[in-house]
Each structure stands twice: as C-alpha cells, then as structure tokens.
Design a protein around this nucleic acid. Structure first.
Lengths: 335, 335
DNA sequence: CTGTTAGCGCATTCAT
DNA sequence: ATGAATGCGCTAACAG
C-alpha cells in the first residue's frame, strides 16, 4: 500500500549533505543558515517531496498548529457564517482549525472542549453555546481563548459579540415609528442570553414609548422555524390582537410567516414581520424580510485573527461589531 | 501560566505502581491486564486527570485518530447536513474530524487535500467538489477515502451518492402527471455533474412523454437563490410560456418563488414549483415547497461509519440511498 | 500477564 | 554557522 517509505528529515539531510539540525533550522527558520546549504536543503525537500511529520513536530515543540473551534449546530446559517469567517481568517497562516459540535448542550460542550484540549490545540475559539463562563475561563487558563457570539464577564477582553439588546431595541423602535402599537415578540430559547437580551430590548423600547408590556404578546420559541409557526398559533389562541411580530431570529420569522399565510393573513399589509440575523435567504422570502444583520463572517474572521495574535503573544484589540437594521418589504407603515 | 506540569503516562505508572507499558496497555486495550492493576491505573488516571498526548501517540503508533473532511461551502444547508451526519457517525469512536473547505474550486481543493494529508489524517472523506477523479484516486492510494455526494468512476466502491438522474426524472414525471406540459427547468452549475444529471433526467422524462425538449425553457443557474430569481426573469424575457418550474435545488426555487411573486404570479395556482434537496426551511416556504429529499444526514453518517470500517481493515458495504419526492403545496393539478 | 528496551521524527540545547 | 546529542510521551516488539 504505502510503497514509498516515509521520507524524513534524515533523508533530506543525507541528500543535502548536511546534518538533521540544519534541515530543522531551515524548516523552522529559527537560526541563520548559509545560503548554499539552505538551497541544497530546499532542493532536496522538493525532490523528495518532503512533508514534515506533524506529530513529531508537535511532540518536540509542544505546538500543534491547530486551533480548536467549539461550535453549536453546524446547520445554522448564522453559525456557519462565523465558521466560514474563521476559516478565512486562518487562511494563509500555518494553523488549521478542528471543529467540534456542542449541539447546544452544556454537557456535550464540556465533552467537546475536553477532546479539543486533549488534541493539544494551541488555542480555542468558542462560538456561542451555553457553557458557564467559569468553565470557559478555566479553559482560558490552559490555552488562549476567544469567544464569539457571546459576552462572558470572566473573559471580557476575549469576546466578540454584538449588542443584542440595543439591536432589539432598535427593531422595536422602528416598528413603533411605523405606527405599530401592538407588537408581538417571538423570543428564542430564554435560557440563552441572546434571547433574553433581545426580549429585554424589545420590552424596554415599548416602555420607553409609554406602552405597557403585554405578556400575552410574548411567546417563547426555540430559534427553529417550527417554533415560529407554533408561536403564532399560540398568539391567536391567546386572542390578543397584534399588528406586528418581531421574531428573535429569521428562522422563527419564516415559521411565523407560514402560520400567517395559513390563516390568510397578509404580510406586510395585515401584519408586519421582522426577524434577526439576516440569514442569506431572508432576502428571498415572500416578501423579503426586514431583519437585523449581524456581521457573522467578519466576526469569525476577527476571531481567527485575534487568535493568531494571541498565539504570537501579541496584544489583541478586539474590533467592535455593529448590527444593522436591514429594511426590506415585510413591514409597512400602519395607516 | 501552566503551573501544573503535564502529567504523563510515567506519572500514572508510578502512582499505580506498574510499568509504563501496563498503563499503555489499559490505554489502548491491546492486551489483557490484570483486573486489579487495571483498576489502579484507571484510578490514578482519574485522580491525576490524565490526558494522553495525542502527538506522542500519533508519532509512536503512526495513527492520528483524525479523519480529514474536505467539503465545499460550509453555508449550504445540504452540505451542512452531511457534515452533521459525519460528526454523528464518528461520535463514540476515538476519531475526530478535521474540516477544510474547498470552496468549489479545484485548486483550493487540491490545496486542502494537501494540508489534510500533511496533517497525517488516517482517512479522508470528500464531500462533493470538483476535483478530478484521478486526483482523488491518487489520494486514495495514500489513505482510505470515502466520497459522498458524488459518483466517481475510479472510486466506484467508495462513493455514497443518490441517483440524481432518476430523481429528476421522477419529479418531471410527477409534473407531467399533474397535467403540466410546459415545464421549465432551472439547472445548477452545469460544470457540476449533479446539475447535468438532474437536467438530463428532466429532459428524458419529457421525451418519454412524447414532449420535445424546448431549450428556451431551460436556464442555467449556479445553485444559489439569486440565480433562481434571475432564471425566472430570463424565462420571461424569452417569452416562452410555462406552467411549472423544476429547480435543481431548493435555494434556486426560493429565488424563483420571489421572482414570481414580484410579477404577481401565484404559486401554485398560476405556476407550479418544485425544488431539490429538501432543505429544512423548504417546509416553511409560502407555500411549502414540493421537493426531493436527499437523506443528507444519513449519507454523512454512513460515510463516517464506512470510514471507521476501512480503518479497521474491514470490508465496507456502502448502503444505497434513495431520494424521495416530498409532496407539499407548491404544485397543483392543472385543470 | 507484565516489565524492559527501542525507537517514532523532529526541535533544541550544547558544543564547536 | 553547524553538527552531535538529548528528549518530547507514547507504542510496540521483545523477553520473561
């Protein structure tokens, strides 16, 4: 099967008539090497199609050149965008990423973190999740860590996130400005801090506008489409009238849209609809969805770059990311 | 920073009063160990919170316990489902996955494959992509390989795929049975074999029904939503009437849906619409989309399991995956 | 069943 | 600037 024996640093040393050390030096460029020798080494490496053994290197150097990414739910467009950004940010560096999926379950996340650390990753990027801050802080003692999509008190200077509270406030404000007074909210899983922040921003905006928060207009979903559909059903069951719905993410907005359609309710003429996350296909909904854009790719890229900095023991300055209200056609001014 | 020195097999050997070898044996369970010693070792490992160094292990054993996954486009729901399946299939095994993204570009794929191999992965799973079969076959000589989502002649017994041609044939047949005669097709990128197979299945079904293929009713898209929208525009520009559209994937169907909506054309009353892939939110479109289900998660899982078999040098028997027409509300019988 | 001995391929002192 | 020597932590023969 593997006819050609693994060629090692030794082989190329012989071929280039130098010592292993010299070869190692041109490999790591940790010390100067005479130009002619370096050339000979390079030539030999090329001719023999040499590939350093990453394990030997890792064992000897203590570095894995791998950064571990703990994510949740590969399927989510939002998280995918972040992952894409991370890959992009790592591009060109000598680091690779290895992913594990926490599936939004704290125990699984711990397990995933464990395997990552067990794989001697040089750093960890945590994307979202439920793990308590203390757990992550502990991880942070073992390896450089960057958290994206969450704000963790214990790791304040290592988090990349957006202000969900403010964004939700702005959405609600926008709906109010359009003349809506009875605005329903489909919240995300409320054990998740983002969901809470979005709901709170919504409530606060209402209060600031002098409108009492009506609990009957708030339904908790789970960030998935189906829960958006169910939430609208729930709203009708409760019988509280509403002229607008603010869903805590686009997926739930999609579900809500279908529920409205089933009841013959038109969007935006009868009910306005706003989502959150600006996932790609939201622009292609019928009608195109007004939503909040989170610069997911950029956040992922920033996370990767920050990690690279940390690994070089350089100080990191995390950029600030802003959300943006993307106005499309699912909201219309109330007469 | 790292106050506590790395604890090694040696430490736990001393603590358990056995030799390193014995510890190694309980670790790898390659040989029987007396129950009491095993217990002592386990206890010591637990108390010292021991984590084997994966590099040392890899170096000594020649195994990386890592399988490399080459994928395209993290953002696609279909590919994500496959990845999720792979992760799922690896779950419980001692293998981890490491992902790289080929971004649908042959050169990038080659590069990605190279880094994967450079990382000494024990096996490679290729998801989709453009790499020529010969390239993949070459990779297959260096490490076990499984290909999912493509059928490659050189690697016939290593591919997991579905019969796109037949599925497309069935879709078209379904539309014909519903009374449609002027059926448009929005193809995917035709440099991609799946796109070709789907188009060909469509054409064949028409021919078998005695209907001449009308080139003006076929538009090439690129699998993305926007191209679906553009395709419909193109169709109208061409002026060929049609009563149904078969898009080569759901994303393009979404785009097509919006284009129709913009022109005030109702689905399914005025035009029937069918997609392909059954991505999650298709069930929540307005109206819910009739589409072809590809068991993506199952395919990914099967790929992982097959890989595990290969790594154990056991013969693999790849399961056959069938597509299924998922009938929802975007098609109505023509009067 | 268990301990002893040799490396795995490379980075990194230490000499020179 | 370069070679020789040492060891990273573990697995895998080899004895016993």
């Amino acid at each position: 099967m593997e006819q050609n024996r693994k060629i090692t640093i030794q082989d190329i040393a012989e071929k280039a008539k130098v010592s292993k050390s010299t070869v190692s030096r041109v490999l790591t460029s940790t010390a100067r090497v005479a130009d002619d020798k370096r050339a000979a080494v390079l030539k030999a490496m090329d001719e023999l199609n040499y590939r350093p053994n990453i394990f030997a290197r890792g064992l000897a150097s203590g570095q894995s050149l791998t950064i571990g990414v703990l994510t949740q739910n590969f399927g989510s467009p939002f998280f995918d965008a972040i992952l894409r950004g991370i890959l992009q940010g790592l591009n060109g560096s000598s680091y690779s990423a290895i992913f594990t999926d926490g599936r939004w379950q704290a125990e699984m996340e711990e397990e995933a973190l464990r395997t990552l650390l067990g794989r001697q990753v040089d750093g960890v990027i945590v994307v979202g999740g439920f793990s308590p801050g203390a757990t992550l802080a502990r991880v942070g003692e073992q390896a450089p860590i960057i958290v994206v999509g969450r704000r963790i008190a214990e790791l304040a200077d290592r988090c990349i996130w957006v202000d969900n509270y403010q964004a939700a406030y702005d959405v609600t404000r926008y709906l109010l400005d359009a003349g809506h007074r009875r605005i329903a909210h489909i919240a995300g899983t409320l054990s998740h801090e983002d969901a809470v922040a979005r709901r709170d921003g919504y409530m606060r905006a209402l209060q600031d506008a002098g409108i009492a928060v009506n609990r009957a207009l708030i339904v908790e979903g789970d960030f998935r489409s189906h829960s958006g559909l169910m939430a609208v059903e729930m709203l009708f069951t409760r019988g509280e009238p509403f002229s607008a719905i603010f869903a805590a993410n686009d997926q739930m907005a999609v579900g809500a849209r279908l529920a409205l359609h089933r009841r013959g309710i038109r969007v935006p003429q009868d009910v306005a609809l706003v989502g959150f996350d600006n996932q790609v296909d939201s622009a292609y909904m019928v009608p195109p969805l007004t939503t909040v854009n989170q610069p997911a790719v950029e956040m992922g890229e920033a996370a990767a770059r920050a990690m690279l900095q940390l690994l070089k023991h350089q100080p990191v300055q995390l950029p600030v990311f802003r959300t943006e209200l993307v106005i499309r056609e699912s909201v219309v001014r109330l007469q």
